[in-house]
Amino acid sequence: MHPDAWLLVVDPQRIFADPASQWGSPMFADIVEPVRRLAADAGERTVVTRWVPAADPQGSWRAYLDAWPFADVAEDDPLLDLVPEVSGLGRHVVSLPTFGKWGPELEAVTGPTPHLVLTGVATDCCVVSTALAAADAGATVTVVTDACAGSSPDNQRAALHVMGLYPPQITLATTADLLP
């Protein structure tokens, strides 16, 4: 990985990892090892994000949480905990009530136009939302295809296809491409 890059691990939480969860990704277990390898390389330049519901959801978020009541829990609910396999990977944890994680909180850690190496879950929701917003703001984004988990294999392919339409701002790579 480039020494100036920031590894961003999007939402490695129980709500997305547990196969019994309504939002569980069947691909999550496969990304744990690539994410851990990338984090070992990135060290202190690793940021982990968490999705948390807003305390007072506004607009479409109210309807969204009404449609998914199981996810409308307190920020400290165990459902929203980081999975043990990736907890402790970075000292930076950013928790936000949005799909996309790019914004002032993340920018305060990485700077305004970083090189982000993007991993996590779900490729077809929070990862793509983060990638597009970050690229739009001027970040360089590398999406690590084997370190992202979609809600399904078909949705994974579709999201990667969409993000692959944005070079040079967004490029796709594998863990093997980035690590020696």
Rank of each mutant, 00 (worst) to 15 (best):
M1W: 01
P3R: 13
D4H: 13
A5I: 09
L8R: 06
L8C: 08
V9E: 06
V9K: 05
V10M: 06
Q13I: 05
R14V: 13
I15G: 01
I15A: 13
F16L: 13
P19M: 09
P19Q: 09
A20P: 09
A20G: 14
W23R: 11
G24E: 07
P26R: 10
F28H: 04
I31T: 11
I31W: 02
E33R: 14
E33V: 12
E33Q: 15
P34R: 04
V35C: 14
R36T: 12
R37P: 01
R37Y: 04
L38H: 03
A39I: 03
E44C: 08
R45T: 07
V47I: 11
V47S: 06
V48G: 02
R50C: 04
W51A: 06
W51V: 11
V52C: 04
V52D: 00
P53F: 04
P53N: 05
A55V: 12
A55N: 11
D56E: 15
G59R: 09
S60G: 12
S60F: 13
R62H: 08
Y64Q: 05
Y64P: 02
L65M: 14
W68N: 15
W68I: 13
F70S: 15
D72K: 12
A74W: 08
E75R: 15
D77Q: 05
D77V: 09
P78F: 04
L79C: 08
L79S: 04
L82Y: 07
V83C: 02
E85C: 07
V86Y: 04
V86L: 15
S87A: 14
L89I: 05
L89H: 06
G90I: 03
G90C: 08
R91T: 15
H92G: 07
H92L: 11
V94Y: 01
S95M: 09
L96W: 02
P97C: 09
P97T: 03
P97H: 07
P97Y: 04
F99K: 11
F99G: 11
G100I: 01
L106G: 00
L106N: 02
A108T: 04
A108P: 05
T110G: 05
T110Y: 09
G111T: 08
T113C: 15
T113Q: 15
T113L: 10
P114R: 01
H115P: 03
V117P: 00
V117H: 07
L118Q: 08
G120E: 07
A122F: 02
D124A: 06
C125F: 14
C126Q: 06
V128R: 04
S129W: 00
S129V: 04
T130S: 14
A131R: 05
A131V: 07
A133E: 13
A134G: 09
A135E: 11
A135K: 03
D136P: 05
T140H: 14
V141S: 00
V141I: 05
T145M: 08
D146Q: 11
A147H: 02
A149R: 06
G150A: 08
G150M: 00
S151R: 12
S152Y: 06
P153H: 13
N155P: 00
Q156N: 12
R157F: 01
A158T: 12
A158Y: 08
L160C: 10
L160P: 00
L160R: 00
H161P: 02
V162W: 06
L165R: 15
P167L: 08
P168K: 09
Q169W: 14
Q169D: 14
T171H: 03
L172K: 01
A173R: 11
T174C: 10
A176P: 00
A176Q: 13
D177M: 07
D177S: 07
L178P: 01
